[in-house]
Amino acid sequence: MTRDPGLQPERTRLAWRRTLLALTGVTVLEIRLALAGHAFDAVLAGLAVTAWLATLLVDWRRATGAGPRRGHRWSFPLTALAAAGMALLGVLHVLRGLR
């Protein structure tokens, strides 16, 4: 098989890595926000870390290229919902701070 001159699989793999890196950064911000100290915030931080770990596990094959070319079938929705979930955790934190 001739090598794809556009290196599309490699570019896609790197795009997954960038995205997971961005998700990691958001997770760190989420944890830092939760360091305010209330028990409620610890729960939010726990949820954020869980979502981050689950996404990393599910997307690992797509991001590293290990194993067959197809990654886990939940990669797409799970990664998007993890991002949305981080946003909702942040909203909950801000609303809690208003009381």
Binding site: T12, A15, L29, E30, L33, A80, M86, A87, H93
Partner: peptide, 24 residues
């Protein structure tokens, strides 16, 4: 199509990071 999805996702993550940064 996959990379376009990922680029949009990073756009969303950037907005979320901005929101989290504004909060703290």
């Amino acid at each position: 199509n996959e990379r376009t999805f990922l680029a949009w996702l990073r756009t969303g993550l950037a907005l979320i990071a901005g929101g989290l940064a504004a909060a703290q």
